[in-house]
């Protein structure tokens, strides 16, 4: 008989004991440990999920903040750009104005300088011309020239129209019936007589005629009576020449 019933019984008991032993030392602890681990993992996963949610929230918050910052930065940049542009325009305008001012001042200065230079030039040229003419005329003046001048002066008196003649007569009356004949040099007696006669004939008969020499008169004769002046004077021509000369110079500089 292959079956020993005592052994069968003993093995059943052994088997039951083994089940108890393994349940106590193997399945129980192992399953408990695994369950606890699973719980821990689940807990950790839950925590991780929560943290993930929090992180997502934080991320969203930061993204929003970032966007705000970017927007703000853009605004500030555009503002700064606008300010800079405005300032640039302002400064450029100011600079332009200043440049204009400086240019204007410069132009004025140049003009002044030019004016003064021209004035000086004019003065000198006039003086020079005058001096030359004076010298030339002084050199040239002699009795013949004097005579010619006298004849011109006499013709001038003779050729006065009525109105002027009356004005002159009034002026002579105001000055106490006196006229003064000025000349550059002492006149001949003949010439003086001729002039006196002409004055008496054409203006007023009962007036005194005084003769004097005047250094102001370059070459010629003048009749003065209470502010009224009649005569022929080379100085006048020279003055006219001086004026003409300065006008020509001014015109020339303006054209430049």
């Amino acid at each position: 008989m292959l079956i020993d019933w005592f052994t069968v019984f003993a093995q059943i008991v052994n088997f039951l004991i083994l089940i108890w032993l393994l349940n106590k030392f193997l399945y129980g602890p192992i399953i408990a440990a695994m369950d606890r681990r699973e719980e821990k993992i689940a807990l950790r996963l839950q925590e991780a999920g929560q943290k993930g949610d929090e992180a997502a929230k934080e991320m969203a918050l930061y993204r929003q903040k970032n966007e705000e910052i970017t927007k703000r930065r853009e605004e500030m940049l555009s503002q700064a750009r606008e300010d800079a542009e405005r300032l640039r325009k302002e400064l450029a305008g100011k600079a332009r104005e200043e440049v204009g001012e400086v240019r204007k001042r410069w132009h004025e200065a140049i003009k002044q300088e030019k004016d003064s230079f021209l004035k000086e030039l004019k003065k000198r040229a006039g003086k020079q011309v005058y001096a030359i003419a004076r010298r030339a005329l002084t050199d040239l003046s002699d009795s013949d020239l004097e005579r010619r001048i006298t004849s011109v002066f006499i013709k001038q008196i003779e050729g006065l129209d009525k109105g002027r003649r009356r004005k002159l007569a009034d002026a002579i009356r105001q000055s106490g019936q006196t006229v003064i004949i000025s000349s550059a040099s002492q006149l001949d007696m003949n010439v003086k007589q001729q002039i006196t006669r002409t004055v008496h004939d054409h203006l007023l008969t009962s007036i005194d005629v005084h003769y004097e020499t005047s250094p102001h008169i370059l070459c010629g004769i003048e009749l003065k009576a209470s502010g009224y002046v009649l005569g022929w004077n080379l100085g006048e021509y020279l003055k006219t020449l001086e004026e003409e000369l300065s006008r020509a110079l001014e015109k020339e500089s303006a054209e430049k």
């Binding site: 292959l2 052994t7 069968v8 019984f9 059943i12």
Partner: peptide, 12 residues
Amino acid sequence: GSLSTTTSLALS
């Protein structure tokens, strides 16, 4: 390898 053991397991 003993029929007694296998019998006891089968009986279990």
